[in-house]
Design a protein around this nucleic acid. Sequence first.
RNA 1: GGGCCUCUAGCUCAAUCGGCAGAGCAGCGGACUUUUAAUCCGCGGGUUGCGGGUUCGAUUCCCGCGGGGCCCA
Length: 365
Amino acid sequence: MRVLAAMSGGVDSAVAAARMVDAGHEVTGVHLALSKNPQSFRSGARGCCSREDSHDARRAADRLGIPFYVWDLSDRFVEDVIEDFVSEYAAGRTPNPCLRCNEKIKFAAVLERGVALGFDGVATGHYAMLGRDGDHVTLNRAVDPGKDQSYVLGVLYQQQLAHSLFPLGDSLKSDVRLEAAERGLTVALKPDSHDICFIADGDTAGFLDRHLGSQPGAILDEGGNRLGEHAGSHHFTIGQRKGLKIAAPAADGKPRYVLDISPVDKTVTVGPREHLAVSRLEGIRCSWTQAELLGEWSALVQVRAHGAPMPATITRTGTGLVVELAEPAHGIASGQAVVIYDGERVVGAATISATTSAVAAQLAG
RNA sequence: GGGCCUCUAGCUCAAUCGGCAGAGCAGCGGACUUUUAAUCCGCGGGUUGCGGGUUCGAUUCCCGCGGGGCCCA
């Protein structure tokens, strides 16, 4: 097979590419330049797309003796990931840019271009397992539960999965590092990347301020009483406790959490932790790893990258879906992804568009 | 000028009939993390405005002084 190895400059993608070479494939390395100005991206230890990272990727490709190219996808990245990120916050939601990047860039733009150039598939360093179910490719959790990345790949469709290769899915992270060292890859000890790659200093609020400006508004309690001020509702996410800076303590002396964000009237509503409990959520922009599922069924759902899978009943409603959780869950924000599992297998994903408070549901009967 | 209220941790406030002074926020440290200025865990010896008094014991009761607020002249 002719394989395109997406190389971020980290340990994982370097080892993934090496394994593809060992497997006898004709491998070409490609690094994605996602910014016109790589200095503005998180460097080295923190990111995947800085100039330093592209050098690391090139060194790894040289070590493996494979051709290496850098593809400039910065325009599409700005349009599909960064602009979406900003507008979602402006709308009071909490986006997941990593998922969006997988959906629109790594497994869309890159795959299209690779296929057009005659490649059979794209290999990445993601921790997930691919399997087969008849004619279909299945997406499953990785062997290493601590590194499993099936959640952020949950948005992929069958055609994308059919051209994807995840050579690390059956390995433990610690073994991948050892293997990198044995192979003489200089990135063997490079720290894992985390946080948002296009916000160099990690200051998400500052980044959003530069794009959205100052949007002062009121912090209210559930009765509508004004407790304090904030400089922009985009500074908050559902379930957030820190940064509210409300001087007066609650009557019961307990901490308060963000329960609701309303950018229209610029208010943020806070209340006790128990009121964060959600029993039901709605999803839109559904995607299915295999055939689209209709009707009603039981499954496991996950609402954050390393959250616990939770039993739920799922019902399709037109183009969207409704998830009834068996047990209430806390801190679920609109804009985040709900990924649906059948055991270890990813069934599909949707973007959370609304949640129903377990407390309100209880009062309603 | 008179009456009433108030002064506790950096900030906002708690502390039943006087009985070892605590919470939230902020801060610092740690865990977790390829999403959220996310979450979680840990860290509070502060002359309880000052000076007297009553009491075995005062943040709590009494007197005086000082800061702040409200009301009446």
